[in-house]
Design a binder for these strands. Sequence first.
RNA 1: GCCGGGGUGGCGGAAUUGGUAGACGCGCGGGACUUAAAAUCCCGUGGUAGCAAUAUCGUGCGGGUUCGAUUCCCGCCCUCGGCACCA
Length: 824
Amino acid sequence: MPLYDPVATEKKWQKKWTETQIHRTDLDSTSKPKYYNLVMFPYPSGDKLHIGHWYNFAPADSWGRYMRMKGYNVFEPQGYDSFGLPAENYAIKHGVHPTISIADNIGHMRKQLTEMGAMYDFSREVVTSDPIYYRWTQWIFLQLYKNGLAYKKKAPVNWCPSCQTVLANEQVEDGHCERCKHEVTKKDLTQWFFNIRKYAEKLLNFEGLDWPEKTKLMQRHWIGKSTGSEITFELADSEGNTTGNKVNVFTTRIDTLFGATYVVLAPEHDMVPKITSDKHIENVKDYMEKARHATDIDRSSTERPKTGVETGAYAINPVNGKLIPVWIADYVLITYGTGAVMAVPAHDERDHAFAVKYGLPIMPVIAHGHDDERSHKSKEVAEAELIIEVSKILEKGAFTEDGVLVNSEGFSGMTSEDARVKITEYLKEKGYADFNINYKLRDWLVSRQRYWGTPIPIVYCEKCGEVPVPEEDLPVELPRDVDFTPKGDGKSPLNTVPSFVHTKCPDCGGPATREVDTMDTFVDSSWYFLRYPSANLKDSPFDPELTKKWLPVDMYVGGPEHACMHLLYARFFTMVLRDLGHIGFDEPFKRLIHQGMITKDGAKMSKSKGNVVSPDAFVEKYGSDVFRMYLMFMGPFSDGGDWNDQGITGIARFVEKLYLLAKSNEFTTDKTAITKAINKTVKKVTEDIEKFHFNTAISALMEFVNFANKNGIDEESRRRLILLIAPLAPHLAEELWEHVGGKFSVFDQQWPEYYEALLAEDTFLLPVQVNGRLRGQIEVPADAAKEDILAKARAVDNVAKFLDGNKVLKEIYVPGRMVNFVVA
RNA sequence: GCCGGGGUGGCGGAAUUGGUAGACGCGCGGGACUUAAAAUCCCGUGGUAGCAAUAUCGUGCGGGUUCGAUUCCCGCCCUCGGCACCA
């Protein structure tokens, strides 16, 4: 009997697939429903395809193959997210130009992808660093720009004062530069933003999307909508004389306004330099400098001791005219709300901690409501009692729940909910407040002071100012010969290329300079899925007809780490392009699935730990089919699994057994049992693949193969078995399909159906419990009556033993599940 | 710290979503074949007690609801992902 030779077999079928162009999708075909099956495209790093890529791509490909057999015209493209920091760093370190290292890596990855045996349509590749692609990334930038969705403002970057360069967050280790270990600070630069906040409300709507609940939840929290009020505080000196300055604060708890005992500004707030009194100026300056070294994560930590300093200025509480001090503290973030808060230490944990530390007054204004008890007491007595009660709570911490207002003049006695409306309305009339909605979502900062990215298509003219590059002049090509090494001025390396920088103004023809920053690579990846069907198109970003037909993406598979950024940006771009009339849908990905992570001995694989498992050696030894099936067998796709060098032998043995079973032409004459078995397997495998539970689909196939090896197989069950294994082990299936005389290709066959009628069993085993403990088991006919079942259950020796002499309080029979006797 | 996952035998995991905990596989133990080894095949395999039937404990920890909890509720612990310039 010949043993299976995976390497030769896989080569044979890869060659045949290439020759027949079987994976090239006819995008114009209308004979079958379309199915756009997409994985998040890889970054072409020097590590080539690692196990994480395999774990992402192979099961997603199995899904595509399954859908093809289900009768869909499946389009499964692949591409490369090739702009980005690593290629630029590699160039600085090794002197290899990114164009070269990227081309090398892509070449290698393409070869590996072919060896994987995935059904990629390589005729439509997307490479984001290719001018043919980024021309349209620039075009999209201009669409945003022309519609008021791209703007410039000052924003801080990580700055290493020693290297005199901008650092990515990744290059900052515990507050220090990864290269020179100098402490990192912040530097303000004027940078480009996309106005994603404008779409915050639309982005909160996930209607019609088959996405994991946790992903939608994470995006909702990331967008962080909160409904509240914005209040204006007039500023004054210590005597209470107004200075004409004002500060706006956002709060969701305007019902606590009478308890505001100070105001806190973020250290970066515009007003700080204007209002700080001479007495406090040194303290404030020191504090602002310290704040420049802290990260937002540290600053928003509720554990970290609160710090802050007085400015010497005062604010006037608009609701009661009280004069309260203005502080600055880094627990207030400039990026959220108005960058200023009214502090109510009685009813907010952070304010409470801060007030206790700096001896600021704590004024209770909300108490638990006791409407029934209070009704017969006078208002004053009732309120006094409530104040005593809440004061006790405040000895331990803030009372943050809603309740009834006290100490709040005319608003006392109202519920928090009512007061939020009434106080806002009252102040609105006086021009001091209004209802407002705030989002945690920040506008998208797209400027990068780096070489290896899409140039921003803007020109600065002495006369005309900021001018967009005309669309017909795109792409603004990235010059090839550039000195990448940091220049010390914090500017992009492009600034050192005079031929790039100096240009003519598109409007007046006068001298002008180009924007030298490049775009965040997330911009590139926010629209690539739109490009695939039109990948080779030269004179437009995407063909209207193809886009209408093929989009949105039906299945998108990628890592959960993208839940909030890439997946949100891609939705934003799609919504913008829809609103501008370029496409006809507003959600890019109909169904989304995240893959889990592969660990080694429970730990994340990393070069520094030296525990990286390289796919190549295993693929060479066992073949792609076994390797990808083992990855799928390790656990549920969304959970990931732990790699074990020995574990793969289980799959190799299974493939061998299946191969021998299918190669043999000995058939059983008794078809009843095997027909039932394969029917059950078809149901199980189909349902499991639909759920991306490849692990249990494979174990069902193992059980079937074990059963067939014991009891024999018939010709029809064998054909169905080969079809079932096809999406999971594509090369093996082609080989066996050929052996049983099937027509090429197995992937053009119909996925097998199962028959309900064959699933029914005549009898089943029923567990019998006494007081919830398993005491025996009975076999009963499928149609047995409850009385008969209970009688039979009672008769079981080991059950009778536990019933004997006890009173049966309850008899529980869950049809088809179990019997339980409750005895005393 | 905040947001979102997860925790089940020696290991990866299964469990029809409140109903026999541990399917399938790895590993391990024993046996067959072999001069021997590998490969293959057969049997066993959560802990404890017992020759066994069986009993008892057992799904991160502590409580609760229920006839019955890996599953639901409350409080902890650990761990992974994200936190806006890695992609």
